[in-house]
Simulated assay, not measured.
Amino acid sequence: MDLTTRYLGLELRNPLVAGAGPFNAELDNIKRLEDLGAGAVVLPSIFEEQIEHEQQLMEDLITVGTDSYAEALTYFPSQAAYAVDPVRYLDLIRRATAAVDIPVIGSLNGATDHGWVEYARQIEEAGADAVELNIYFIPSDLDLTGRAVEQRYIDILKTVKAAVRIPVAVKIGPYFSAIGNMARELDKAGADGLVLFNRFYQPDIDLERLALVSDLDLSRPNECRLPLLWLGVLAGRVKASLAASTGVDSAVEVVKYLLAGADVVMTTSALLREGVQHIQSLRDGLEHWLAARGIHSLAAIRGCMSHRNIPDPMAFERANYIRILQGYGRK
């Protein structure tokens, strides 16, 4: 059975990608994911704040005492010229790319178009096959317009694209006023892939302590409908690869995303709940679904349920919304 697929211009043996998560920070887990059938691995995100923090630490270290010895000022380059990296992350990329044959994708999490660009170059130099920009930005400034928010995403992408030669994917959230247009603008700006969607972690309130609580709420299958909608709308209408990244708990969600038009399907929460061995269950389930229907290639099903390909594309739009509401309770 042919499960091969292309994502970001890379050849993958199947569409199952271990999304950015803490389990991917261990080389042994990356090796196991390859052995268990993962098509690619996205490393955990390195955060813009971490990079800037280490740069500041290095600046502090190299300037200590320089006021006592004037000539010492020439010993070290300035912070701007001295790119400091979280060394272990780059080392993980080097070791992982040397140890496995599947693509290893670095992940950068940030909110500005500076401070992490040089690090993107270093990710490339360390051997990563691609980089995923996980742009996590909450526009809490009430003077910030929607267009300004969109432009920030585009500026980050363009800046990183200008700095590296490896493919660049952009992971976005679902809260743009016109997601389709935003996807097209990112596509035009050079995104090699779009990952739908980033899950923003909102705070809760502890009523006993009257304090904000931040915790990790793992995704569930019922959350797949929003990315399913937009993957179906975008499939075949943008050049960028499309990755699904929410609510993938079983092969059921994998198949649905592929039918909608996803090139790859990423899972993180399920691997956190079930362990990295769950990637094999997803692959086996996908193969079983295809075999039961006499389908021998993903090309036969990918996108066949997208907006472009279904007989009634209005099922993605307002007419279906009205039909659902009017028909509720009549069965």
Results as ranks from 00 to 15, higher is better:
M1H: 01
T4P: 02
R6G: 12
L8N: 01
P15C: 05
L16Y: 00
G21R: 06
F23K: 09
E26V: 14
D28R: 12
G39V: 02
V42H: 01
V42D: 00
P44M: 10
I46K: 03
E48R: 04
I51C: 04
H53T: 15
E54K: 03
T63V: 10
V64N: 13
T66K: 11
D67A: 01
A72S: 15
A83D: 08
V84L: 00
D85V: 14
P86F: 03
V87I: 12
D91G: 13
I93Q: 04
T97M: 07
T97H: 07
A98I: 08
A99Y: 07
I102A: 09
A111I: 07
T112A: 04
T112P: 03
E118G: 06
I123Y: 03
E124Y: 10
A128R: 05
D129K: 15
N134F: 08
Y136D: 15
T145Y: 12
I156A: 14
I166C: 12
P167C: 01
V170C: 05
I172Y: 05
P174R: 06
Y175N: 14
I179G: 03
L186W: 08
G190H: 04
D192G: 13
D192N: 14
V195C: 11
L196P: 07
L207W: 12
L210G: 11
S214L: 13
D215K: 13
D217A: 08
D217Q: 12
L218W: 13
L226S: 05
P227Q: 15
L229Q: 13
L234M: 11
A235K: 11
V238F: 15
S241C: 12
L242M: 07
S250L: 06
A251C: 02
V252E: 14
E253C: 10
V255N: 00
L259P: 04
G261T: 08
M266C: 00
T268W: 03
T268K: 03
L271R: 10
E274A: 07
S281A: 10
L282S: 07
L282N: 04
D284F: 00
L286S: 02
L286K: 03
L286F: 01
L290G: 02
A291Y: 05
I295Q: 06
S297D: 04
A299D: 05
I301C: 10
C304P: 01
H307Q: 12
R318T: 06
A319Q: 14
Y321A: 00
Y321C: 00
I322V: 14
R323I: 03
L325S: 13
Q326G: 14
